[in-house]
Protein backbone atom coordinates (compact mmCIF):
# COMPACT_ATOMS: atom_id res chain seq x y z
CA UNK A 1 0.00 0.00 0.00
CA UNK A 2 1.46 3.32 -1.00
CA UNK A 3 -0.30 6.58 -0.18
CA UNK A 4 0.73 9.60 -2.29
CA UNK A 5 4.22 8.22 -2.83
CA UNK A 6 4.98 7.58 0.84
CA UNK A 7 6.55 4.22 1.68
CA UNK A 8 4.20 1.80 3.50
CA UNK A 9 6.42 1.92 6.58
CA UNK A 10 6.12 5.71 6.75
CA UNK A 11 2.33 5.50 6.40
CA UNK A 12 2.29 2.97 9.25
CA UNK A 13 4.46 5.24 11.39
CA UNK A 14 2.19 8.23 10.74
CA UNK A 15 -0.76 5.97 11.56
CA UNK A 16 0.96 5.03 14.81
CA UNK A 17 1.38 8.69 15.77
CA UNK A 18 -2.27 9.28 14.84
CA UNK A 19 -3.30 6.43 17.15
CA UNK A 20 -1.08 7.76 19.94
CA UNK A 21 -2.59 11.25 19.68
CA UNK A 22 -6.10 9.80 19.61
CA UNK A 23 -5.27 7.80 22.73
CA UNK A 24 -3.92 10.95 24.44
CA UNK A 25 -7.10 12.86 23.55
CA UNK A 26 -9.31 10.05 24.91
CA UNK A 27 -7.28 9.72 28.11
CA UNK A 28 -7.47 13.46 28.78
CA UNK A 29 -11.22 13.46 28.06
CA UNK A 30 -11.74 10.59 30.54
CA UNK A 31 -9.46 11.62 33.42
CA UNK A 32 -9.55 15.37 32.68
CA UNK A 33 -11.94 16.13 35.54
CA UNK A 34 -9.43 14.71 38.03
CA UNK A 35 -6.67 17.12 36.99
CA UNK A 36 -6.39 20.65 38.35
CA UNK A 37 -7.81 23.33 36.04
CA UNK A 38 -4.39 24.76 35.13
CA UNK A 39 -2.88 21.40 34.25
CA UNK A 40 -5.96 20.31 32.30
CA UNK A 41 -6.07 23.50 30.23
CA UNK A 42 -2.37 23.22 29.48
CA UNK A 43 -2.58 19.55 28.49
CA UNK A 44 -5.70 20.08 26.33
CA UNK A 45 -4.08 23.06 24.56
CA UNK A 46 -0.89 21.07 24.02
CA UNK A 47 -2.71 18.10 22.53
CA UNK A 48 -4.67 20.37 20.20
CA UNK A 49 -1.43 21.94 19.02
CA UNK A 50 0.02 18.45 18.54
CA UNK A 51 -2.89 17.56 16.28
CA UNK A 52 -2.37 20.71 14.24
CA UNK A 53 1.38 20.10 13.91
CA UNK A 54 0.80 16.43 13.07
CA UNK A 55 -1.60 17.24 10.23
CA UNK A 56 0.61 19.96 8.73
CA UNK A 57 3.64 17.68 9.01
CA UNK A 58 1.85 14.64 7.55
CA UNK A 59 0.36 16.61 4.65
CA UNK A 60 3.74 18.21 3.84
CA UNK A 61 5.43 14.79 3.90
CA UNK A 62 2.73 13.22 1.75
CA UNK A 63 2.59 15.87 -0.98
CA UNK A 64 6.15 15.73 -2.29
CA UNK A 65 9.79 15.95 -1.26
CA UNK A 66 10.00 19.62 -2.24
CA UNK A 67 6.86 20.52 -0.30
CA UNK A 68 8.43 18.90 2.76
CA UNK A 69 11.63 20.90 2.22
CA UNK A 70 9.59 24.10 1.85
CA UNK A 71 7.81 23.20 5.09
CA UNK A 72 11.11 22.96 6.98
CA UNK A 73 12.32 26.20 5.36
CA UNK A 74 9.13 27.83 6.65
CA UNK A 75 9.80 26.46 10.15
CA UNK A 76 13.29 28.02 9.98
CA UNK A 77 11.79 31.32 8.84
CA UNK A 78 9.22 31.42 11.64
CA UNK A 79 11.87 30.51 14.22
CA UNK A 80 14.43 33.04 12.98
CA UNK A 81 11.76 35.76 12.90
CA UNK A 82 10.70 34.95 16.45
CA UNK A 83 14.35 35.00 17.53
CA UNK A 84 15.16 38.33 15.84
CA UNK A 85 12.02 39.81 17.42
CA UNK A 86 13.03 38.67 20.93
CA UNK A 87 16.70 39.65 20.96
CA UNK A 88 17.93 43.23 21.05
CA UNK A 89 18.82 44.47 17.58
CA UNK A 90 20.36 47.67 16.28
CA UNK A 91 18.47 49.90 13.91
CA UNK A 92 21.59 50.09 11.74
CA UNK A 93 21.33 46.31 11.16
CA UNK A 94 17.91 46.19 9.49
CA UNK A 95 19.45 45.32 6.13
CA UNK A 96 21.93 42.93 7.74
CA UNK A 97 18.99 41.00 9.17
CA UNK A 98 17.37 41.00 5.74
CA UNK A 99 20.50 39.31 4.35
CA UNK A 100 20.40 36.85 7.23
CA UNK A 101 16.84 35.90 6.20
CA UNK A 102 18.08 35.26 2.65
CA UNK A 103 20.28 32.48 4.02
CA UNK A 104 17.07 30.45 4.52
CA UNK A 105 16.10 29.98 0.85
CA UNK A 106 19.77 29.54 -0.07
CA UNK A 107 20.31 26.81 2.53
CA UNK A 108 17.17 24.86 1.59
CA UNK A 109 17.88 25.14 -2.14
CA UNK A 110 21.22 23.50 -1.39
CA UNK A 111 19.32 20.70 0.36
CA UNK A 112 17.05 20.27 -2.68
CA UNK A 113 20.16 20.18 -4.91
CA UNK A 114 21.69 17.59 -2.53
CA UNK A 115 24.89 19.68 -2.60
CA UNK A 116 26.23 18.47 0.74
CA UNK A 117 29.63 20.22 0.53
CA UNK A 118 28.05 23.66 0.20
CA UNK A 119 25.12 22.88 2.55
CA UNK A 120 27.57 22.20 5.37
CA UNK A 121 29.60 25.43 4.96
CA UNK A 122 27.15 28.06 3.69
CA UNK A 123 26.22 29.36 7.15
CA UNK A 124 29.26 28.38 9.27
CA UNK A 125 31.70 29.83 6.71
CA UNK A 126 30.10 32.19 4.20
CA UNK A 127 27.33 33.75 6.30
CA UNK A 128 29.74 33.92 9.25
CA UNK A 129 32.24 35.94 7.22
CA UNK A 130 29.90 38.00 5.05
CA UNK A 131 27.28 39.27 7.50
CA UNK A 132 29.82 41.15 9.67
CA UNK A 133 31.16 42.64 6.43
CA UNK A 134 27.67 43.94 5.66
CA UNK A 135 27.55 45.33 9.20
CA UNK A 136 30.83 47.14 8.64
CA UNK A 137 29.36 48.73 5.52
CA UNK A 138 26.49 50.05 7.65
CA UNK A 139 29.19 51.82 9.64
CA UNK A 140 27.84 51.48 13.21
CA UNK A 141 30.50 50.13 15.61
CA UNK A 142 28.60 50.47 18.88
CA UNK A 143 27.61 46.97 20.13
CA UNK A 144 29.16 45.54 16.95
CA UNK A 145 30.41 42.29 18.46
CA UNK A 146 27.17 41.64 20.34
CA UNK A 147 25.10 42.23 17.23
CA UNK A 148 27.35 40.03 15.07
CA UNK A 149 27.31 37.25 17.66
CA UNK A 150 23.55 37.40 18.16
CA UNK A 151 22.86 37.32 14.43
CA UNK A 152 25.12 34.36 13.78
CA UNK A 153 23.86 32.38 16.77
CA UNK A 154 20.34 32.75 15.39
CA UNK A 155 21.32 31.60 11.92
CA UNK A 156 23.18 28.59 13.26
CA UNK A 157 20.35 27.50 15.54
CA UNK A 158 17.27 28.32 13.48
CA UNK A 159 18.55 27.70 9.95
CA UNK A 160 21.71 25.57 9.96
CA UNK A 161 20.56 23.15 12.68
CA UNK A 162 16.96 22.81 11.52
CA UNK A 163 18.00 22.31 7.89
CA UNK A 164 19.63 19.04 8.98
CA UNK A 165 16.13 17.61 9.44
CA UNK A 166 15.47 18.49 5.80
CA UNK A 167 18.76 16.96 4.64
CA UNK A 168 17.71 13.61 6.15
CA UNK A 169 14.93 13.59 3.52
CA UNK A 170 17.34 13.68 0.59
CA UNK A 171 19.82 11.06 1.82
CA UNK A 172 20.11 8.15 -0.66
CA UNK A 173 17.07 5.84 -0.47
CA UNK A 174 19.13 2.70 -1.23
CA UNK A 175 20.73 2.67 2.22
CA UNK A 176 17.33 2.77 3.98
CA UNK A 177 15.12 1.00 1.42
CA UNK A 178 12.18 0.34 3.77
CA UNK A 179 11.45 3.85 4.98
CA UNK A 180 13.84 6.21 3.12
CA UNK A 181 14.59 9.75 4.25
CA UNK A 182 11.04 10.26 5.49
CA UNK A 183 11.55 7.38 7.93
CA UNK A 184 14.67 9.06 9.34
CA UNK A 185 12.80 12.36 9.75
CA UNK A 186 9.93 10.65 11.56
CA UNK A 187 12.36 8.76 13.80
CA UNK A 188 14.21 11.97 14.76
CA UNK A 189 11.21 14.29 15.14
CA UNK A 190 9.02 11.74 16.94
CA UNK A 191 11.75 10.73 19.42
CA UNK A 192 12.74 14.35 20.05
CA UNK A 193 9.17 15.42 20.78
CA UNK A 194 8.31 12.25 22.70
CA UNK A 195 11.43 12.73 24.82
CA UNK A 196 10.08 16.16 25.87
CA UNK A 197 6.71 14.65 26.77
CA UNK A 198 8.28 11.71 28.61
CA UNK A 199 10.54 14.07 30.58
CA UNK A 200 7.48 16.13 31.55
CA UNK A 201 5.46 13.06 32.60
CA UNK A 202 8.27 11.36 34.57
CA UNK A 203 9.03 14.71 36.19
CA UNK A 204 5.38 15.12 37.28
CA UNK A 205 5.25 11.52 38.56
CA UNK A 206 8.60 11.12 40.32
CA UNK A 207 10.28 14.53 40.23
CA UNK A 208 12.14 15.43 43.44
CA UNK A 209 15.49 17.00 42.60
CA UNK A 210 15.72 20.03 40.35
CA UNK A 211 18.17 19.43 37.54
CA UNK A 212 19.09 23.07 36.77
CA UNK A 213 17.21 25.32 39.23
CA UNK A 214 18.66 28.62 37.98
CA UNK A 215 17.84 27.93 34.33
CA UNK A 216 14.70 25.83 34.20
CA UNK A 217 13.03 25.24 37.59
CA UNK A 218 10.50 22.77 36.13
CA UNK A 219 13.16 20.24 35.07
CA UNK A 220 13.97 17.44 37.50
CA UNK A 221 16.77 14.87 37.40
CA UNK A 222 14.18 12.09 37.67
CA UNK A 223 12.32 13.52 34.67
CA UNK A 224 15.48 13.75 32.58
CA UNK A 225 16.54 10.17 33.41
CA UNK A 226 13.01 8.82 32.88
CA UNK A 227 12.78 10.63 29.54
CA UNK A 228 16.19 9.36 28.48
CA UNK A 229 15.31 5.75 29.37
CA UNK A 230 11.97 5.99 27.55
CA UNK A 231 13.64 7.45 24.47
CA UNK A 232 16.31 4.73 24.41
CA UNK A 233 13.65 2.00 24.60
CA UNK A 234 11.61 3.65 21.82
CA UNK A 235 14.70 4.14 19.65
CA UNK A 236 15.53 0.46 20.06
CA UNK A 237 11.93 -0.53 19.16
CA UNK A 238 11.60 1.79 16.15
CA UNK A 239 15.07 1.81 14.60
CA UNK A 240 14.82 -1.51 12.77
CA UNK A 241 11.62 -0.33 11.17
CA UNK A 242 12.50 3.26 10.22
CA UNK A 243 16.31 3.43 10.03
CA UNK A 244 19.36 1.42 8.89
CA UNK A 245 20.77 1.46 12.47
CA UNK A 246 21.88 -1.77 14.22
CA UNK A 247 20.59 -2.50 17.73
CA UNK A 248 23.68 -1.07 19.45
CA UNK A 249 23.60 2.01 17.20
CA UNK A 250 19.89 2.49 17.86
CA UNK A 251 20.46 2.51 21.61
CA UNK A 252 23.27 5.06 21.17
CA UNK A 253 21.00 7.17 18.92
CA UNK A 254 18.26 7.08 21.57
CA UNK A 255 20.72 8.20 24.26
CA UNK A 256 22.01 10.94 21.96
CA UNK A 257 18.51 12.25 21.18
CA UNK A 258 17.42 12.08 24.83
CA UNK A 259 20.47 13.97 26.13
CA UNK A 260 20.67 16.47 23.27
CA UNK A 261 16.93 17.16 23.52
CA UNK A 262 17.31 18.07 27.18
CA UNK A 263 20.32 20.30 26.44
CA UNK A 264 18.50 22.09 23.60
CA UNK A 265 15.48 22.66 25.83
CA UNK A 266 17.47 24.22 28.68
CA UNK A 267 19.66 26.23 26.30
CA UNK A 268 16.62 28.02 24.88
CA UNK A 269 15.31 28.39 28.47
CA UNK A 270 18.57 30.14 29.39
CA UNK A 271 18.21 32.42 26.37
CA UNK A 272 14.63 33.36 27.31
CA UNK A 273 15.62 33.91 30.93
CA UNK A 274 18.40 36.23 29.80
CA UNK A 275 15.89 38.21 27.73
CA UNK A 276 13.28 38.19 30.50
CA UNK A 277 10.47 36.43 28.60
CA UNK A 278 8.53 33.32 29.60
CA UNK A 279 7.23 32.04 26.26
CA UNK A 280 8.83 32.95 22.97
CA UNK A 281 5.44 33.78 21.45
CA UNK A 282 1.82 32.71 21.28
CA UNK A 283 1.77 30.87 17.95
CA UNK A 284 0.75 27.50 19.39
CA UNK A 285 -1.66 27.49 22.35
CA UNK A 286 -0.07 25.86 25.41
CA UNK A 287 3.30 25.60 23.68
CA UNK A 288 4.34 29.24 23.59
CA UNK A 289 6.04 30.18 20.35
CA UNK A 290 7.71 28.07 17.71
CA UNK A 291 11.08 28.40 19.48
CA UNK A 292 9.61 26.63 22.49
CA UNK A 293 8.62 23.76 20.23
CA UNK A 294 11.84 23.32 18.26
CA UNK A 295 14.30 24.05 21.09
CA UNK A 296 15.20 20.36 21.48
CA UNK A 297 15.32 19.80 17.73
CA UNK A 298 17.99 22.51 17.38
CA UNK A 299 20.33 20.15 19.23
CA UNK A 300 19.04 16.73 18.21
CA UNK A 301 18.84 17.40 14.44
CA UNK A 302 22.50 18.05 13.61
CA UNK A 303 23.76 15.52 16.19
CA UNK A 304 21.52 12.71 14.94
CA UNK A 305 22.22 13.63 11.31
CA UNK A 306 26.00 13.46 11.70
CA UNK A 307 25.73 10.28 13.81
CA UNK A 308 23.85 8.44 11.10
CA UNK A 309 25.73 10.14 8.25
CA UNK A 310 29.09 9.00 9.67
CA UNK A 311 27.91 5.45 10.28
CA UNK A 312 25.88 4.74 7.12
CA UNK A 313 26.09 7.37 4.36
Amino acid sequence: MSVLGLQPVVVQALGGIFALLSLASVVVAVIGSRLSDDVRQEVVARIQSWWLMFFIFAVAMALSRNVSLAFFAFVSFMALKEYFSLVPTRRADRRVLFWAYLAIPAQYVLVAMEWYGMFIILIPVYAFLLLPMRMVLAGETRHFLRAAGITHWGLMAMVFSISHVAYLLVLPEAINPGAGGAGLVLFLVFLTQFNDVAQYCWGKLLGRNKALPTVSPGKTTEGVIGGLATTIVLAWLLAGWLTPLSTAEAIAAGALIGMAGFIGDVTISALKRDLGVKDSGSLLPGHGGILDRIDSLIYTAPLFFHFIHYLHY
Partner: peptide
Amino acid sequence: HGLGKALPRGEGLLVPFM
Protein backbone atom coordinates in the same frame (compact mmCIF):
# COMPACT_ATOMS: atom_id res chain seq x y z
CA HIS B 1 5.44 47.60 18.71
CA GLY B 2 7.52 46.15 15.89
CA LEU B 3 6.54 48.06 12.76
CA GLY B 4 9.08 50.74 13.64
CA LYS B 5 11.66 47.99 13.14
CA ALA B 6 9.97 46.20 10.21
CA LEU B 7 9.18 49.25 8.04
CA PRO B 8 10.12 52.58 9.65
CA ARG B 9 9.74 55.99 8.06
CA GLY B 10 12.06 56.55 5.13
CA GLU B 11 12.71 52.83 4.50
CA GLY B 12 11.33 50.95 1.51
CA LEU B 13 12.54 47.46 2.49
CA LEU B 14 10.29 45.38 4.72
CA VAL B 15 12.30 43.29 7.20
CA PRO B 16 10.27 40.60 9.01
CA PHE B 17 9.71 41.24 12.72
CA MET B 18 6.89 39.98 14.93
